[in-house]
Amino acid sequence: MDFTPQELLIASITRMLRGLNHVAVGASSPIPGAAALAARRLSDGHLRVSVLGSRKNNFFTDGGRELFDCAAQGRIDAFFLGGGQIDGQANINLVGTGGYPRTDVRWPGSFGSAYLYFLVPRVILFREEHTPRVFVPKVDFISAPGVSEPNVYRPGGPYALLTGKALFAFDKARQRFRLETVHPGFSVADVEASTGFEFDRTAHVDVTPAPEPELLALLRGPVRDEVAETYPQFAATVMCGSDDKENRV
């Protein structure tokens, strides 16, 4: 069985969406977007998917605020956030590095993270680049905090962190990540060397399971066309289908 690194990531996310009712995906998140659209097909249409910025895969009719109100009502089960920096307490930084406001590197901004991270029960952190410059001991700017004081209303928060090298779970009680699986081609030592924060792990860490054949068929067929509607460049360059041999793991 051969598959691309992106297909492995999509498969990992798809497993985390099993049994949910409604997942929302941001406008610049093609891999989570592809995973959500695939999970919808695997659920026989039970899972609702809202892809922000998509016409076809977005049923909201009450303007930009509806997604946020919907999350506050508890109607969104899972959402995805990334980060230019992510630290070991699951704080995320979408603003920039160095001082503020005159940052050394400036990123687009916090979007809805400062709200959705509090309200969506299963927030999956996703960042493909797994390097010490991304996974830092402490973020330079907190767009959204990983944990809150007990008096703060917070039904939601971090659930997992998926990178190009590994999958972590977030332990809310310990306020730390725990290494769950390492992707094929990488070792626990690789993950430790490329992570700037400390995390928990068991003595033996499994390899991230390969994508299921049923999922691969979806990704190389109908889901690719659905993804192209919102993420045309990603669909054209990454989800190239079965002729794309050199990109395989």
Binding site: G63, R65, S110, G112, A114, Y115, F141, S143, E149, V152
Partner: peptide
């Protein structure tokens, strides 16, 4: 810097002619 629902809420306050809108989240952010 702001967060999406904070801007929406601030406009909803103006639309209602009230001075502010309360909103969940945000606490603990920079």
């Amino acid at each position: 810097d702001a967060t999406c629902p904070a801007i929406h809420a601030a406009f909803q306050a103006a639309e209602k002619g009230i001075p502010f809108m309360p909103l969940r989240g945000i606490i603990g952010t920079d």
